[in-house]
Amino acid sequence: MGKLSNLKIVLLVLVVVLVLVIVKTVGKDGFKQDAKSAIEAVDSNNFIISANEIENNKTQYLIVDLNESGSSRFENSLKIPFEELLEESSLKQLKETENKILLVASDISITAKAWVILNQLDIKNVFILSNEDNPEVLKYEFQPDTMARLESDLQ
């Protein structure tokens, strides 16, 4: 015990730092995830669900309709307008569900933004519905101007 009491000051410093670290970690209200996780999830493409997949396993999903108004194309969907996404009641439902969460909206811009926010709030198993197979494919082919010449070619 004699040795330990000699280390009192050192241990005190360590405890103070530990408390500060804990306060800083716990006291932070908001996002805690690394943004990297969102990029990785998108890269591995396991956040998009196609319409066909839904038809087959409807019961697996909690369908969340983010549209402001209008009737949903899915029955039994949970209606949470985009602006109310972070309200206590909505978040509670999203956190407590045991099903996978499927975000649905008229525009993929809305679901994409909502997906990032929920992903960074560490809500697991959130997917977005894609109407097209892959929205990030260029449907057009660029036609180069074959008349274009370098100035050096003209000389």
């Binding site: 969102a38 994409a112 933004k113 990032v116 097209e132 929205p135 990030e136």
Partner: peptide
């Protein structure tokens, strides 16, 4: 190419 990635990156 579409809307998805640009909106994700924006967020």
């Amino acid at each position: 190419n579409g809307d998805q990635n640009a909106n994700i990156v924006w967020t």
